[in-house]
């Protein structure tokens, strides 16, 4: 009797797990279906002349464009450059952002002084600054990395600083009662408590860094996906433009997943 009950409990649990799996497979299936449907209709419309494939390209043409660029290795160079610039500005944003937010947290006076400037710099459309960077820094990788940093940095500082401030004040009191200093409060409580905030800020900033890098490449590059998009549109090679955009989509997904994994790993470790 007891055995039977046990079996019942187990099978209910198994049923639950099975249901959960079926649900997940169904969602994944629908996602792929949507993608293939979109690509199929796109190809069909382009082949039958419903849309002009000169302007709208088609999955087949995008693929052949991509393969020809793989064949002469040029695509790897463009992807590599854009990826490098994005990662460089992303890491610099996180580094400078953490340092700045720490300074602001340390000094209440400094944060009060800086507040209006941060708000203005954060709401300013950073693409407006890109032409200035070109004049100041010339057309090179440095300019593009600075453009990437400028888009993400101020928002990063503000969200990290806000995160630091949301840490329970009583936890700080605890450190003081144990004879600690403000430095101990920061390293023993504020920083470890803010890791989820830092990770979610990273998720936002990797996308923003890419936006900044593409803006920079539009204006001041001879290589990279942003350059390919601008070049392609100027010479009316729209296959090239759309191929680059699709590669950008895949890069964004990849970078986002990377941080998602880091977050997952951290949660598991906790």
């Amino acid at each position: 009797m007891r055995n039977k009950e046990n079996e019942n409990v187990l099978s209910a649990q198994e049923l639950f797990i099975k249901k959960h799996r079926v649900h997940h497979h169904r969602i994944a299936g629908m996602r792929f279906l949507l993608l293939f449907l979109f690509l199929g209709i796109w190809e069909l419309c382009a082949d039958t002349g419903v849309i002009d494939s000169f302007f709208f390209s088609s999955p087949g043409r995008v693929l052949s464009c991509f393969l020809s660029m793989v064949a002469d290795y040029s695509i790897f160079q463009h992807i590599g450059i854009t990826l490098f610039e994005t990662l460089a500005s992303f890491f610099l944003v996180i580094l400078i952002g953490l340092l700045a937010a720490t300074l602001l947290w340390y000094s209440k006076g400094l944060s009060e002084i800086m507040e209006p400037y941060l708000v203005v710099l954060n709401s300013l459309p950073k693409s407006a600054l890109a032409p200035l960077f070109i004049v100041w820094l010339g057309t090179g990788m440095g300019t593009i990395i600075v453009a990437g940093i400028s888009v993400a940095l101020f928002g990063c500082i503000i969200s990290l600083y806000t995160g630091f401030h949301q840490v329970d004040a009583e936890k700080a009191t605890l450190i003081y009662t144990l004879g600690g200093t403000k430095k101990d409060v920061f390293f023993k409580v504020v920083l470890p408590d803010s890791i989820p905030t830092i990770l979610s800020t990273m998720k936002v900033n990797i996308g923003l860094a890419l936006v900044g890098v593409i803006i920079g490449e539009f204006l001041a590059a001879r290589r990279g996906l942003g350059y390919l998009i601008i070049y392609g549109s100027q010479v009316f090679q729209l296959h090239l433009v759309i191929t680059s955009i699709i590669i950008l989509c895949i890069i964004t997904m990849g970078l986002y997943q990377m941080i998602q994994y880091a977050e997952h790993w951290y949660r598991k470790k906790m």
């Binding site: 936890k171 144990l178 004879g179 023993k188 890791i195 906790m270």
Partner: peptide
């Protein structure tokens, strides 16, 4: 502190000092 083990929590003061 949630990210520390119990031993690490009780030795927090020692660590600070």
């Amino acid at each position: 502190l949630e990210w520390r083990t119990i031993l690490k929590n009780v030795t927090l003061g020692l660590e600070i000092a």
